[in-house]
């Protein structure tokens, strides 16, 4: 297995990048609706899907909140907002990361990719997206953007995973519909066509 994509490394990456393990009581503080605190710069520039965006970010604001509620990128879903489900997975410098557990300020100098950034300008789906369509991987679809981003991250670091490696690499994403087998079929198909 490619060591870059283990669940342990995934989680460690999240923690190292400035985890804000939110609970319901501080969710709303993380939504960037507070007043400036101290000397932390609020207007920051972040690179999202290849575009540098200037956005007003509170010190404790999570990347998921910034993406969804400031930049309108609602493809990133919040299933738990506490680092358990993976529905909010995005890529930060190619590493799958829980956007609910990453402070936006911590990614100022990094490249963020969301599910909206995968499709080409002419509407061609990313190989992972295309494979997920062909395998009918999603069921309810709420976890799908996170599954897509984890799969993209996995295949960038390990373009030809075994099915077991794919299973390990995707293990940070929950699917309550239980579509794991179909997602793995999609990952393996994407590896074939990618």
């Amino acid at each position: 297995m490619n060591p870059k994509t283990t669940r342990r490394r995934f989680i460690k990456g999240v923690i190292a990048s400035g985890a804000a393990a939110t609970t319901s009581t501080i969710w709303f503080a993380a939504n960037g609706q507070d007043k400036p605190a101290g000397a932390v710069e609020r207007m920051i520039r972040i690179n999202v899907n290849g575009q540098v965006r200037t956005v007003d970010v509170a010190p404790q604001e999570t990347l998921a909140s910034t993406l969804r509620y400031k930049l309108g990128l609602t493809g990133t879903k919040l299933g738990c907002n506490r680092g358990e489900c993976g529905a909010c997975t995005v890529l930060v410098d190619d590493v799958p990361s829980y956007a609910c557990s990453v402070l936006t300020h911590s990614v100022k100098n990094q490249v963020v990719e969301t599910v909206e950034g995968l499709e080409s300008a002419n509407g061609t789906l990313h190989p992972v997206q295309q494979a997920f369509v062909e395998e009918l991987s999603p069921q309810c679809g709420y976890c799908t953007p996170g599954q897509v981003m984890s799969a993209v991250g996995l295949l960038r670091s390990n373009p030809n995973p075994t099915r077991e490696e794919a299973r390990q690499g995707m293990a940070g994403n929950i699917c309550r519909c239980g579509s794991y087998d179909s997602y793995l079929n999609g990952v393996m198909r994407a590896a074939d066509i990618g």
Binding site: G75, T114, V115, F132, P145, V148
Partner: peptide, 15 residues
Amino acid sequence: VPQDVPGKVTGRIKY
């Protein structure tokens, strides 16, 4: 291919 599947893999479909 059900008509909503592309929206699910691109994040376009709205909840």
